[in-house]
Nucleic acid binder design. Sequence first.
DNA 1: GATTTTCCCGTAAACGTTTACGAAAATTGG
DNA 2: CCAATTTTCGTAAACGTTTACGGGAAAATC
Lengths: 341, 341
Amino acid sequence: MSSSKTTIKDLAKALGISIATVSRALNGSHEIHPETRAKVLAKAKELRYKPNIQARNLLKRRNNMIGVVVPEFITFFFPEIIIGIQEVVNKEGYQVLICQSNESSTLERKNIEMLEESMVEGLIVSVAKESKNLDLYERLINEQMPIVFVNRILPELRASQVIIDDRKWAFKAVEHLIKCGYRKIAHLAGNEHLSVTKRRLQGYLDALQAYDIPIQERLIMYVGIQQDRAKAGIDLLMNLKEKPDAIFAINDPIAVGSMLELKKRGLKVPEDIAVVGFSESPIGKIMELTSVSQPTFEIGRIAAETLLKQIKNFDTPTETIILDAKLNIRNSSIPVHKRPK
Amino acid sequence: MSSSKTTIKDLAKALGISIATVSRALNGSHEIHPETRAKVLAKAKELRYKPNIQARNLLKRRNNMIGVVVPEFITFFFPEIIIGIQEVVNKEGYQVLICQSNESSTLERKNIEMLEESMVEGLIVSVAKESKNLDLYERLINEQMPIVFVNRILPELRASQVIIDDRKWAFKAVEHLIKCGYRKIAHLAGNEHLSVTKRRLQGYLDALQAYDIPIQERLIMYVGIQQDRAKAGIDLLMNLKEKPDAIFAINDPIAVGSMLELKKRGLKVPEDIAVVGFSESPIGKIMELTSVSQPTFEIGRIAAETLLKQIKNFDTPTETIILDAKLNIRNSSIPVHKRPK
DNA sequence: GATTTTCCCGTAAACGTTTACGAAAATTGG
DNA sequence: CCAATTTTCGTAAACGTTTACGGGAAAATC
């Protein structure tokens, strides 16, 4: 019907006043007569005027958008972070462009370039597991693009990041197993050059060392981070002469995959073997999996806040924010002597 | 470093030619000398020129963005749909603004209005469970905004929609239970005025009728659609004199919630009671829950395609697309006589 | 060699805003 | 009642593009 293309000019013409006056009236400028303001607003409503944000953005050289790139958003983890982000930035009038790299380094690059073309004012990124887009991010940082990394970071970069202390919490998880009486603790690690893989592995090693348990190379295997990758690890572990009595998995998907795989082999958790995950997932909870829970929403919120700070003031120093986590103990890792037979 | 604000004017000045020529060279116009084109491109690369999309959009009165509003994206369902959408529209150069209504009607309205202000060229919407924003959508449709509804639709609206035949697949799910020998089949329905609630309930009724099983009002309860809402339903069902021997749940979260609740009461699935869900979820799969799987990615892709059609040609007639689904039978609903004791 | 055609390129307007600057009108002060 | 303010509004430039139009030079046609 009404072409819905009412512009500020139309209002001006209809009222016989200048477009400057109309603009000022709409923006609530003080230097405008209340009466004319009322007229303008009335006419605007009548003609269904909607400001053209693009024109405004062009003028102000901004567009109120930030970009988010995550490896995936099928599992609960990143969606929760994104919700935290939106909570904060929407309040400030920002919109969020969400991309998923699908764990692919090249798609990640494409996404970032797309977002750059869309002229987002800032980026929040969690890199793909094989990401080697250092050059890209270095260029962006050089060009003053505000950018915050979450969870999956690139340690080589001087950029803001919000993470948890993976090493510490991996330590706590493994320590828990040790205190439960387990001694032959295997570790299913993630992809080899992923930062969280290294940090959690380090925590695992720390714990063994702290409790004088010898480290056995064959109990450590890099399987990856997706549920279906657990099978390979279990295959190998269960073929060892000396089988582990507990597994510390890089994350919940691997832990869950392991539990399912163990079940297939007729092994019971925790009777035959204990399992601990990381980054508590809904599925893990249901399966009564002990795990470290990350403050996902909080991660998103904090990341958004530090990004907004950088957007508003380009020379805000970069900061590394380490959030707290929690070890939730469930049935998958009860003390050795309390296990049902 | 380099202020990254190179404009077409800067290129023109640096080369001593007009901005029109530069623009044409960059856009690969045929009416440009190859030599000058080369010069322009070289200079563009040298000065790190990036076109300002906003200016271009302003001129062309479009912005290559579509909006998506879903009730949530924490569970797998909508994220998968969104991925399908992105697959299609990214290829055409469109970006997607994703909002979640959090199942709130008012937030849904706010989201839509935000997207409208962002001047998206089209919308893909799945309404909140209590959504009564009919006026809003009617206005949008009136104002020629291309819009496609998925999964959660508003039947009162003349708009494109892509769904599955909930009634038919609910029928099949219940029919499956009947054929397994179950007779006292309860239905945990969703929120009362949600379209899928009505359609799936209808399928349930159809099936009972088709197999001459009397319909019992007390076996039907509206519990909602979120996992934690299952408890209330199970509470009531298990207090009946004549308890059901099977449950058809509106969706997987309710089915999963029911299974957990039943387990707490010491009841086994399927030995004591069978359970069937809808919209197959990863958790459901792991718990061996029989369920109807929806082609989520496909839903997203098709929705995106019909939306793009409408964007490109405003008077494309609205269409209702009904996609196929599948009943996946698992351990939660095996035939009565085959159940382990 | 004159005319037509083709090839390149520049001028300027347009997209819908915001805002610095200035000016007319209204208000105040004495 | 005149000067000094203050209020209120209009003019015009600007944001970074694209493109219709026109024009000059080179190439083609006869």
